[in-house]
Simulated assay, not measured.
Amino acid sequence: MTEEPNLSARELIEQLTPALSRRRRVQAVAALVAGLAGAVFAATLWWSEPGPLPGRTHLAFAVLTAFCLAWTGYGGWLLTRRVPLFATDRVVAAWLGLAASVTTTAGLAAVAVQRGTGLAPTLAVGGLFVAAALALAVRAHHRRAELLRRMHELTRADPASSD
Rank of each mutant, 00 (worst) to 15 (best):
R56I: 13
D89M: 03
W71A: 05
S161L: 00
P50D: 13
T122S: 00
A70D: 04
L119C: 02
P18W: 12
T80S: 15
E146K: 14
R25S: 07
W77K: 03
H141D: 09
Q114T: 12
G97T: 06
H142I: 09
N6I: 10
V111E: 15
A66F: 15
L45W: 06
W95E: 15
R23A: 11
L134M: 12
A70Q: 09
T117A: 08
T155S: 04
T88W: 11
A31I: 00
L98K: 00
Y74K: 09
A106W: 06
A140N: 07
P159I: 00
G126Q: 07
R143S: 07
S161N: 11
S161I: 00
G38F: 02
R149H: 08
R23Y: 13
I13Y: 13
S162C: 05
W95M: 06
L98Y: 00
F86Y: 14
L108C: 07
L64M: 14
L36T: 14
A112T: 01
A39I: 06
T122R: 05
H142K: 13
G107T: 03
R143F: 00
P5C: 07
A100N: 04
L36H: 09
N6K: 12
G76H: 09
F61R: 02
V83F: 03
T122Y: 07
Q114C: 04
S8P: 08
T80V: 09
C68P: 05
G51L: 11
R10H: 12
F129W: 13
L45C: 10
L7H: 13
L16F: 08
L32E: 10
P5I: 10
S21D: 08
L136T: 11
A34Y: 09
L128F: 14
S48M: 07
S161W: 05
R149W: 10
G127W: 11
G51D: 08
